[in-house]
Simulated scan of single mutants.
Amino acid sequence: MNEKKMISIDQFDADERLAVEQAYKVLAEKYRQRTGKEPDSKKEREFNSEARQQVMARKLERARVQAEKQKKPLRKKKPSSLTASEVSDFNWSASVAKGRR
């Protein structure tokens, strides 16, 4: 089976814990509406785990975006100093037009 590890609640701050609770409530409500009965303890654990996974995924995505924003833009090399593997968008028509005398 595809069992995911339970994420510890200690990894979340207060706002994220609130988001976990809200995600859990949404999942439990969907289950109640779909089946018409209350979730048992096994389903509650499953919903809690799923809610933590969702919030952790959002947290990691925000961290990744923040890290990308902080990266310095790479200095663009002169075309003459590029290696063959670095040239991706070579324009032959511009090259030929530039080379005309």
Results as ranks from 00 to 15, higher is better:
78 K>Y: 06
95 S>M: 14
85 S>A: 15
20 V>S: 02
50 E>F: 02
12 F>Y: 02
82 L>D: 01
100 R>I: 13
49 S>T: 15
16 E>Q: 15
88 S>R: 14
27 L>P: 00
100 R>C: 06
71 K>Q: 14
70 Q>V: 09
98 K>G: 01
15 D>S: 10
52 R>L: 10
9 I>Q: 05
8 S>G: 03
16 E>D: 04
36 G>E: 03
64 R>F: 06
81 S>G: 00
53 Q>N: 09
99 G>C: 10
47 F>L: 04
56 M>T: 01
101 R>N: 10
70 Q>F: 02
63 A>P: 00
73 P>V: 15
77 K>A: 14
24 Y>K: 12
51 A>M: 03
20 V>L: 03
4 K>Y: 09
50 E>V: 05
73 P>G: 04
3 E>C: 05
25 K>F: 01
80 S>G: 06
42 K>M: 10
88 S>K: 15
7 I>T: 11
80 S>R: 14
12 F>P: 01
15 D>P: 00
57 A>Y: 05
8 S>V: 04
7 I>Y: 03
94 A>N: 09
43 K>H: 04
34 R>N: 05
72 K>G: 02
61 E>R: 13
38 E>I: 06
51 A>V: 04
96 V>M: 11
77 K>Q: 09
61 E>V: 06
6 M>S: 11
54 Q>N: 04
39 P>R: 14
2 N>V: 14
80 S>W: 09
22 Q>W: 01
56 M>A: 09
45 R>Y: 03
12 F>Q: 04
9 I>Y: 02
27 L>A: 15
19 A>I: 01
83 T>P: 00
59 K>V: 05
11 Q>L: 15
17 R>D: 01
76 K>Q: 10
31 Y>F: 15
24 Y>N: 06
46 E>P: 00
91 N>E: 11
17 R>F: 00
8 S>D: 15
77 K>E: 07
101 R>C: 01
20 V>N: 02
65 V>F: 02
39 P>W: 10
78 K>T: 07
83 T>M: 05
32 R>N: 04
92 W>K: 12
64 R>Q: 12
81 S>K: 08
7 I>E: 07
53 Q>T: 04
3 E>G: 02
71 K>N: 10
13 D>H: 09
32 R>C: 06
10 D>R: 13
38 E>K: 14
92 W>R: 13
60 L>C: 04
93 S>W: 03
14 A>M: 07
35 T>W: 03
31 Y>V: 07
24 Y>F: 14
42 K>Y: 06
41 S>R: 11
37 K>R: 14
90 F>V: 11
72 K>T: 09
92 W>P: 03
24 Y>V: 04
83 T>H: 00
73 P>S: 12
82 L>Y: 03
46 E>S: 13
13 D>T: 07
73 P>R: 15
7 I>K: 07
63 A>M: 11
26 V>A: 10
57 A>P: 00
16 E>F: 01
1 M>E: 10
33 Q>V: 05
75 R>M: 05
33 Q>N: 12
62 R>A: 12
93 S>A: 11
69 K>D: 02
21 E>M: 08
81 S>H: 04
74 L>N: 06
94 A>Q: 13
36 G>F: 03
63 A>S: 07
7 I>G: 02
